[in-house]
Simulated scan of single mutants.
Amino acid sequence: MISRSIRAPPSLILLLALCFFLGYQFSRSPFVPTTALCASPSDSTSIAEPGRANGPRIAIVTFVTSEYSYMYTSLKGKNYARRQGYDLVIDYEEHAKRGTMWWKFEMITRLIKTNKYDWLWWLDFDTLITNTDIKLTDIIQETLANVTNPDEIDYLLTHDCNGLNMGSFVVRAHERSTKVFRDAAAIEGRHREKGEQFSEQDSMVTLLKDDAATSQRTIQVPQWKLNAFPEEISCFDESDRVWEPGMFVLHFAGAWAHVEGPDPTGKLMKKYEGEVIFGDWEDMYELTI
């Protein structure tokens, strides 16, 4: 019998050594998730804060699949998650068969199945969290305070001048929510069979109109509270309130239709990034040296 030694490729040995070294170094800091260091590009990046305060378990969910001029600005604003003790879950690829924006439903469904969260906040990437003092949990509690059966409300949605806007919404992490996504997908499938394109937002509008049970599980939040638009994008809900300094979230939805130039969203991000209220960094980081 001939004995053969098995040699690992040098590149594999180097990668394993690098992962071991980085894992050791970063494991000494409680603020860097070592599991994300050597993850494949298709994996989500989840940034969790240890020692979170008691209360509802929250994850902020988003994805970005291209490189934009405003990536750093958008991500820096979402450091809000660290300050409030929420998780931030980001995908860098999407594989939705029905269209790119359907991936949000795939992500939310996947997170619901983990049983790690009570509420999930979907937030489009072309957004700035402009006031990190405001707690999402407070908005949820205030919204449900006057509802007869708050445990039966699964969706906190916002509108703009065109109706439903799904660029920022909150969903209860419950199996009922995944059924809604399946029902919306079924609506899209029926339209696709007719040769019609139907977005995830169009499908939700139809579902909310035609299905009373789903409609009863939703509540509309004033746009300025959860999905405010700047003055350059004058498409507001019934409250007719433009974003003002101190408001929670700023969304540059459809900037291409309202702002001239080759990079409309980047232009608005640059204009408003100085308005972000970040809070004291010493409250978010525990220095170890």
Rank of each mutant, 00 (worst) to 15 (best):
I140H: 06
I140C: 07
Q141H: 14
Q141Y: 09
Q141C: 05
E142W: 00
T143K: 00
T143E: 04
T143F: 03
T143H: 03
T143W: 00
L144F: 05
L144M: 07
A145E: 12
A145Y: 01
A145C: 05
A145F: 01
N146F: 08
N146W: 02
V147D: 00
V147Q: 10
T148M: 03
T148I: 05
T148K: 08
T148C: 01
T148L: 04
N149R: 08
N149D: 15
N149Y: 05
N149H: 12
P150E: 07
P150M: 04
P150V: 07
P150S: 05
D151Y: 01
D151V: 04
D151T: 14
I153D: 03
I153V: 15
D154P: 00
D154Q: 01
D154E: 08
D154L: 06
D154M: 03
D154S: 11
Y155P: 02
Y155W: 15
Y155H: 09
Y155R: 01
L156Q: 05
L156P: 07
L156S: 09
L156M: 13
L156F: 06
L157D: 06
L157I: 15
L157C: 06
L157V: 14
L157N: 04
T158Q: 06
T158I: 08
T158P: 02
T158K: 00
T158V: 15
H159K: 08
D160A: 02
D160E: 13
D160C: 12
C161L: 02
C161D: 12
N162H: 14
N162E: 12
G163F: 10
G163Q: 04
L164H: 10
L164V: 12
L164Y: 10
L164M: 07
L164I: 11
N165L: 03
M166F: 08
M166S: 15
G167R: 03
G167D: 09
G167E: 07
G167T: 13
G167W: 03
S168Q: 05
S168Y: 04
S168T: 15
F169L: 11
F169H: 09
F169E: 04
F169T: 04
V170C: 05
V170L: 14
V171C: 14
V171P: 04
V171W: 01
V171I: 14
R172I: 08
A173C: 09
A173G: 11
A173K: 01
H174I: 07
E175K: 10
E175M: 06
E175Y: 04
E175H: 10
E175P: 02
R176W: 12
R176A: 12
R176Y: 11
R176S: 13
S177N: 06
S177I: 07
T178D: 04
T178I: 13
T178G: 02
T178N: 06
V180A: 15
V180H: 07
V180T: 15
V180W: 00
F181A: 09
R182C: 02
R182A: 11
D183H: 05
A184D: 09
A184V: 15
A184R: 01
A185T: 08
A186C: 00
A186Q: 11
A186T: 14
A186E: 15
A186Y: 05
I187M: 05
I187K: 02
I187H: 07
E188H: 11
E188S: 12
E188V: 11
E188C: 14
E188F: 02
E188N: 13
E188Q: 15
G189N: 11
G189H: 06
G189S: 14
R190K: 15
R190D: 14
H191V: 03
H191A: 14
R192S: 13
E193R: 10
E193H: 06
